[in-house]
Amino acid sequence: MRYATRTSILLIISVVVIALSLSYAFLSLGSVIRVKVSTTTSLYATGLADYLASSFNSVYPEARVEFVAVGTGAALKLAERGDVCAVLIHEPSLEKQYIDKGVIRDRKIFAYNYFVIVGPAEDPASISNSSNLVEAFKKIYHAGEESRTLFVSRGDNSGTHFRELSVWRLASLSVEGARWYLDCGCGMSEALIMTNELGAYTLSDVGTYLKLKDSGRLGRLRILYENREDNLTINLYSAYVVEGCGGLEKKYAELFVNFIYENQRELIGSFGVNEYGRPLFYPAKDEEQIVQELWNVIASGLR
């Protein structure tokens, strides 16, 4: 008898649990149109991606934009496999490859900001008076070879990683396997935290750095090289619709890409100004011509 009661209680519990989880699964499927978008970690970590999604949602309440935050390389791989319907990325040379392959189309450059070199306030490699990014990297290289400093590399095929590799290439320096060159294979936030822990240098987009600095996680770090005249430091964010997806999701992916492109002045220019005292991103529309030209220069491999 006792055994039978126990069994029936167990049965009831499991039925309830299964019913609850099934109903949750169905409710969350619901009637909302889910638009899956892969985005770079910098857009996600700064909160801009979610801000864009919620602004879009207030105009199109029937759709919900969902982000997969990965490096640019992975974002494009997801697009190629048809797992996402739009991409927000920042590595023109890689974007060009995927445009040529027919994976993505309709480039919309919607924002830009700058890459900066951050490092310990003492600046052991004295890069702060460098006149360009290549010179700053050369100084870090020499300081590294003399064991005076470390450099943290993203190593994750992200846009920032690609840019860093281009600069080493332009400086004709080989860093592969150097003891001072730490390839962490991680996102921007993790790389910045590691850089802070080790008192090292790293190349960062200014947005993620400011965001993390503001939260008090980067006590030792300062921006040591920032130069808006240096075209090598410009960081262009583009939105694309993925060719391989279809149906309603594609329609809303197109709407989303157009929405952020058309409304960039209002959405992007003011984002983060209250919290960080300066914008994290700039709308690309004001300098459309220059931005397009720069995109082409970077896409053809930065010579």
Binding site: G71, A74, G185, C186
Partner: peptide, 17 residues
């Protein structure tokens, strides 16, 4: 070359695409 182990390398493989 220092602290990368199999599981973190797998996670990185996915992150890199």
């Amino acid at each position: 070359g220092h602290t990368r182990v199999l599981t973190t390398a797998i996670a990185l493989g996915v992150a890199r695409g």
